[in-house]
């Protein structure tokens, strides 16, 4: 493969990876603060896609304008789900959390299927037809560039929130020691509900941004739950910066694997890396090594 073909594949990989990063960051947030592996993560992404779809079809708002509204709505839903369902099992075994989040995912998927049917949908607007040429060799599809920009801003915003705000500090305190944090005056459930909502809405924004270049049906999120899981492990479980970098890395690795070995290997390589990291460096490529 010549240089420009490879460069093109890297560019495409970064663009896809930015969306993976957003999904992964949401999952890392939830895991970091709550120690919950959110098996419903892809489902929330799918829900974000349906919300975006409804806004597009009913109100003719393109996803690049409607995503803040979707994010807000999904934040609210995440908050409620935490308060109603996750709070009662607080402190119980991990097994309960896995079953519960899996169950939430199944229930939402079935509810969506009941309302919208099993049929798939896609959306069309003029920007999708636009290809941008960078130099004479690199071509990028405009919606991917826009979604990359939005993902960057959203991801950066999340990072800022975690590092530089009061509730971010509270979340980090809980992540450090969830028994000591409440003793320091942190309202455990309120903070956790807030961050669960935020994690869910990050997944939903990724869904909003993916919708224009993909399609949706009730089960569309499942593959992204798995991807998010891989990303979070690569990124060091609780580090959102790690998750962001791991997401982009995964996008690039998939794209280059596709180019050099063939698309059928992309998923295999994903999971090979996943297994290698788990066995050789369980704290993740980007995570801090703990004793």
């Amino acid at each position: 493969m010549d240089f420009f073909t490879t460069l093109q594949a890297v560019v495409n990989g970064v663009l896809t990876g930015a969306l993976y990063a957003l999904v992964g960051m949401g999952m890392a947030l939830i895991f970091g603060v709550m120690r919950i592996v959110n098996f419903a993560h892809g489902t929330f992404m799918m829900l974000g896609m349906y919300a975006t779809y409804v806004l597009f079809v009913q109100a003719h708002v393109v996803p690049y304008y409607s995503f803040p509204l979707v994010a807000l709505g999904m934040y609210g839903l995440g908050y409620l789900i935490y308060m109603a369902l996750l709070r009662p099992i607080h402190g119980q075994s991990d097994f309960m959390q896995i079953l519960l989040t899996l169950g939430i995912g199944l229930a939402i998927t079935d509810a969506i299927q009941l309302v919208f049917g099993a049929d798939y949908h896609q959306i069309n607007f003029p920007l999708l037809e636009k290809n941008l040429h960078l130099g004479s060799h690199i071509t990028v599809n405009a919606p991917w560039v826009v979604s990359f920009g939005i993902a960057l801003v959203t991801g950066g915003g999340l990072y800022f929130f975690v590092m530089h705000t009061m509730s971010g500090r509270a979340a980090r305190a809980i992540a450090q020691n969830r028994y000591a944090a409440p003793l320091m005056g942190i309202h455990l459930h309120r903070v956790q509900a807030f961050w669960f909502g935020l994690g869910v809405s990050a997944a939903a924004v990724a869904g909003s941004l993916l919708l224009p270049v993909f399609y949706l049906y009730p089960g569309v999120g499942d593959q992204f739950t798995l991807k998010a899981f891989v990303i979070v492990v690569l990124g060091g479980m609780e580090s959102i910066v790690g998750a962001a970098m791991a997401g982009v890395l995964l996008g690039v690795v998939e794209s280059l694997t596709s180019l050099y070995w063939g698309n059928e290997w992309a998923l295999a390589v994903d999971f090979a890396i996943f297994l290698l990291v788990l066995s050789l460096r369980p704290s993740g490529i980007f995570g801090r090594q703990k004793a």
């Binding site: 493969m1 594949a9 495409n12 063939g262 698309n263």
Partner: peptide, 10 residues
């Protein structure tokens, strides 16, 4: 998959 561009480039 959302992205088949690398495959098509091949």
């Amino acid at each position: 998959s959302p992205d088949y561009k690398a495959l098509l480039a091949r």
